[in-house]
Design a protein around this nucleic acid. Structure first.
Lengths: 220, 220
DNA sequence: AAAAAAATTTAGACCAACCTAAAAATTGAT
DNA sequence: ATCAATTTTTAGGTTGGTCTAAATTTTTTT
């Protein structure tokens, strides 16, 4: 039996919300993330449980089963591969691709995904730095730091973002902060916790705490 | 207001069935083509008429309005561009791409279509020889001949197919008949109307009437 | 530990897209 | 021109995914 567009979205969102430890996700959190009401979520959870895609006991929250996990990771794989396509091949900006990939991720065809993967040269990361699961469903989250955890004087490489909102990504574009660039923390402003950061040994600029919280980096 | 996947399919099929003269399409023909029942078609026709996408009077068949035509042609444009992508970039065979393109054609984003079109180098024809409408919605059907209309001794170029069934396309592959190849009609067999055809000045083979009826060619 | 608050589920309804069965309109044959 | 066959529409029902309002369970506060 095939999973619908909607079912795939629920599974993807449950995966995202349960984090790497696979903890329970609440009905309300799902209602928030799916932009539906809690009652609708309950209906869907009953259906997903019947299909063996989630572990669900009333009032107890929800976890993916192994087979649900597989479906979710496949959707994530497709989403991220299509994002690479849109940016690398079609020339979209990293701030423009999320909604389109959200549609493309539900196109069903294993054959298509594998050919797309080859065509793109088996990329390991999408344009936002998120890791792309392999064809077998292995998804290894690299353990990046958040910029707020970096000490003054350290040099780090920009590896990804936590927020994918176009406005945030456009802000980074304007600041010249791109994936892979080198950042050095010069100082932390006591007053508002903003950081003075030198980018690529060139200009220094202030990064607000809000922005720092959403930047993933790696020590070097 | 956005058109649904299903609505787009109805419009596309009405376009195909009404031919270049835009004649009336019957409810039964649509039921056949959409693999639904006539009653379901009637429901949908009422809806499409309310949206101003078709001209519909009870018992009188149906025609696209100008705005319906625009939607249909846009779907066709997307379908054919995606087919080019699948064959030219991903390496699919022309017999494998129809069903996948059937899904991709409903991805909504004008921006995406135009970038895809550029990426592919503004192709004029899809892998089956069907013309690709331009961004403004101009679709000009070249007036090809059907192979059955070609006289003995004539040389023609293979330009397209009427049937897109995988089994038919695979048959052409096995016979070495590809888009653009040169065919010379050597003789017509009286008994079964099959044709002896020489391909690219090389081997000669028999083409059944059934096959001939589905081959589009051009005199040269 | 009881009461209040919050989260979740149930009950009953709606819309899109489909169905079957029956009724109505059109077409075609004599 | 009438009657039979065919086509099309109407009536009423189903399923997937959503909703609101009310009921229930869990959690938090006092």
């Amino acid at each position: 039996m095939q999973n619908s567009f909607t079912e795939e979205n629920y599974l993807k969102i449950i995966h995202a919300l349960s984090g790497r430890d696979g903890l329970e996700v609440s009905t309300n959190a799902l209602a928030e993330s799916t932009s539906t009401r809690a009652a609708s979520v309950t209906d869907m959870l009953r259906k997903l449980a019947e299909k063996g895609l989630i572990h669900y006991k009333k009032y107890q929250g929800v976890r993916l089963t192994e087979s649900g996990e597989k479906v979710a990771i496949n959707v994530i794989r497709k989403h991220r591969l299509w994002e690479v396509f849109l940016v690398e091949k079609l020339g979209f900006g990293w701030d423009e691709v999320h909604d389109i990939a959200e549609e493309l991720e539900h196109i069903p065809s294993d054959h298509l995904v594998e050919r797309l993967d080859s065509f793109l040269g088996h990329p390991r990361f999408d344009p936002h730095g998120d890791p792309i699961p392999d064809a077998k469903g292995n998804l290894t989250e690299p353990d990046y730091l958040i910029l707020t955890d970096v000490e003054i004087g350290e040099k780090v490489r920009m590896m990804g973002v936590l927020d994918h909102a176009p406005s945030f990504l456009q802000h980074l574009d304007r600041a010249g902060i791109t994936l892979g660039c080198i950042l050095e923390i010069k100082e932390i402003n006591e007053y508002d916790k903003s950081a003075s950061v030198q980018i690529e040994d060139k200009q220094t600029l202030f990064i607000s705490l809000e922005v720092s919280k959403n930047l993933l980096v790696q020590r070097r």
